[in-house]
């Protein structure tokens, strides 16, 4: 199962390697080794292939030293080994800029924001969603309002959140909560509504009433689907992270990435992206496995 999932990564990796290591496939640039007679060339500089050919021709005509160089890809496409090295150094050597956070510190910061935001949202969103889905009257009362709020883009609340909650982690967590909560209530209310009505009726004929209908029938009945919903919502929370981390004092993995991009350390950017992907994908895979283990009766699991 996992092997099959990893298999789907092989093809993109192969393409990336081919493009990086076989000069005749793409390599639209030339990395200058010796500038020769060209006054503005510097060693290590990347120039367009046409530009390099033009300059070489000019030098030959003028009888000056020819520049030398090797074909290269643009700066924004580092080779796999460069990214791998960046990944390694990111965890082993101090960051170049003083006071800059280590990669893992940035990551941990981001993960904390996500987890707090998601937990806070779930603490209210899940029960509210279940109640909305179970009792038609509650649903009809609250859902239109939530539906309205859902369409307001979470970033719009950024300035407000900063004004209310200060510039540190408070507003960032708030953005994750706002981005997750409204969807969460609607999705979970919907999941709850899809529970077979006869299960509730069967429970009622067996003497179940009141709160126990929710705790003993509705909740266990929707649990596998609820779990699936939460997995998807957690993925969404990650996308709101970018917005969240750009407001107030920018921080976390987004800060790390924008910093590295500014200094054109694209191998670091890719390393960070890779780690985010691995964490997101890995945790979802793990949660999926956990779901198999937790809900042995769930028959839809074979499809996911």
């Amino acid at each position: 199962m996992i092997a099959r999932k990893l298999g789907s990564f092989l093809l993109p990796l192969l393409v990336w390697s081919l493009v990086s290591y076989l000069p005749f496939i793409w390599h639209p640039k030339v990395q200058v080794e010796a500038p020769g007679g060209v006054d503005y060339f510097l060693p290590g500089m990347l120039v367009d292939r046409e530009e390099f050919a033009q300059q070489s021709a000019d030098m030959r005509q003028q009888g000056l030293a020819l520049p030398t160089g090797v074909p290269a890809n643009p700066i924004y496409l580092p080779a796999p080994h460069q990214v791998a090295k960046a990944l390694y150094t990111a965890f082993t050597t101090e960051p170049e800029q003083k006071d800059a956070p280590w990669l893992h510190e940035s990551l941990w910061q981001s993960i904390q924001i996500i987890l707090w935001g998601f937990l806070l949202s779930s603490a209210i969103g899940v029960p509210l969603g279940i109640v909305c889905g179970t009792y038609q009257s509650v649903g009809r009362l609250s859902e239109p309002f939530i539906e309205f709020f859902r369409y307001l883009p979470a970033p719009a609340f950024g300035a407000l959140a900063v004004a209310v909650l200060g510039i540190y982690d408070g507003p960032k967590i708030a953005i994750i909560v706002i981005g997750t909560f409204f969807q969460q209530v609607l999705i979970i209310a919907n999941t709850t509504r899809k529970l077979e009505a006869t299960l509730i009726e069967a429970a009622r004929t067996l003497g179940t009433r009141g709160v126990r209908l929710i705790t003993r029938v509705v909740l266990p009945g929707i649990l596998p689907d609820l779990y699936r919903d939460q997995r998807i919502l957690l993925g969404w929370a990650w996308t709101y992270l970018i917005v969240a981390e750009l407001i107030g004092t920018s921080s976390g993995i987004t800060f790390f990435i924008t910093q590295q991009a500014r200094y054109q350390h694209f191998e670091n950017v890719y390393a960070a992206m890779l780690i985010i992907g691995v964490i997101g994908f890995g945790s979802d895979l793990l949660l999926g496995r956990l779901g198999h283990f937790l809900f042995p009766w769930d028959r839809t699991r074979d499809r996911t």
Partner: peptide, 20 residues
């Protein structure tokens, strides 16, 4: 008035609790 333990019901679609 409402369901009660004095009346048991068996549904066409079984409606067993799948999680139990």
């Amino acid at each position: 008035s409402g369901p009660g333990r004095d009346r048991g019901m068996v549904f066409q679609g079984y409606s067993l609790f799948p999680w139990l």
